[in-house]
Write a protein that binds this DNA or RNA. Sequence first.
DNA 1: GTCTATACGATGATAGAC
DNA 2: GTCTATCATCGTATAGAC
Lengths: 210, 210
Amino acid sequence: MWKGFVLQQSLVKLINFMKIDHSKKQLEILEKAAALFRDKGYAATSMRELAQAVNLKVSSIYSHFSSKEAILQVICFENAQKFTQNMASIEAQYNNPLQQLEALINLHIEIALEDTTSVTAFNDEWRHLGEARLEEFLSLRKEYEMKFCAIIEAGIAEGTIQDIQPQTIFYTILSSIRWLYDWYKPNKKLEAILIKEQVLRLLLRGIVSE
Amino acid sequence: MWKGFVLQQSLVKLINFMKIDHSKKQLEILEKAAALFRDKGYAATSMRELAQAVNLKVSSIYSHFSSKEAILQVICFENAQKFTQNMASIEAQYNNPLQQLEALINLHIEIALEDTTSVTAFNDEWRHLGEARLEEFLSLRKEYEMKFCAIIEAGIAEGTIQDIQPQTIFYTILSSIRWLYDWYKPNKKLEAILIKEQVLRLLLRGIVSE
DNA sequence: GTCTATACGATGATAGAC
DNA sequence: GTCTATCATCGTATAGAC
């Protein structure tokens, strides 16, 4: 049995450039906004609620962000960058397609377990971006998808990955991890390790036991 | 290699009781509402938009449904019932846990491929139910989860399913299918069959090839 | 940067004529 | 059942004092 995935856990370092370029108050607003967007959705979250959550009057928020959508933009694009940059570092680190894929799955699981709020908002609420920004966002997303699928494709050619449409594998991986955002409560560190190992095994080896 | 899943495709019959109990106009409203809720989200969909979509004035909608939330309620609870009833019929049809699980996965894939709008709205927008109905809904969902996990548990005990926390398997299956709602365009019948076979194989046997 | 005050369009929902 | 008319409320956003 192939056991490579046991060896390379936790090698991926998460880059937190969200903390660069923003003032303390901006960061506070971004965090609370992400939490509200995650819990109630972007459209159902009002600026009045957000203001209350950060102990400001509504108008004061506009000293930090030009609009409600501007806040969503930061959340969406900084998270998109996070995934793109991590993928680049993974590609540099491994040259084996299967190891790259495993590291990518690991990356997505780790991000899901570590940063529940911001990434969830990014995952679910990007569609509320305005037309221009939405187009930009979708193009970034498409680029990420193509790189991801290229790795899968290489693994299929090599014979280490099942011969299934790369897009199907890609979408299945990405969405299969999404329940972590909704269900995982970041209390127990031990449980996180167990979940990570089990989800990874489930995706790589399947449900059926030999 | 275990090949049972090749034999029992498409045995699951989808029950469409959504078409019972509602007038034609109510059905039209429900369909358009589901499409709008799916595309823009419940909160971002206004009654005026919905009215326009069904060629009515806003006030006329209130002759068919008592409120915007009442429409969401129908969508959520009738879809919940759909899954519950299908599960019951699967449990009656098979007594092998692995076959039951495979039929359940098949069910979820088939529903995703056949009925994109209503189920997507149900999947994503239930959280906008009012407090009382939300509680009711979550209890139905919990019940479904427990039955689903009991089947997985039986498979693990039997040795046919990998020894992984049943909840982890359950959540991974359910969410792994969700990309179909977002990405699959119901044009090509042939492609649907291919996707179904591949997703099923991916979940059951995993990404890594032997 | 934060406040009070306010603009003003959109929202869910109702009253009452036909 | 459908319409016109209307309501009260809430939405994002701005102006201007401190």
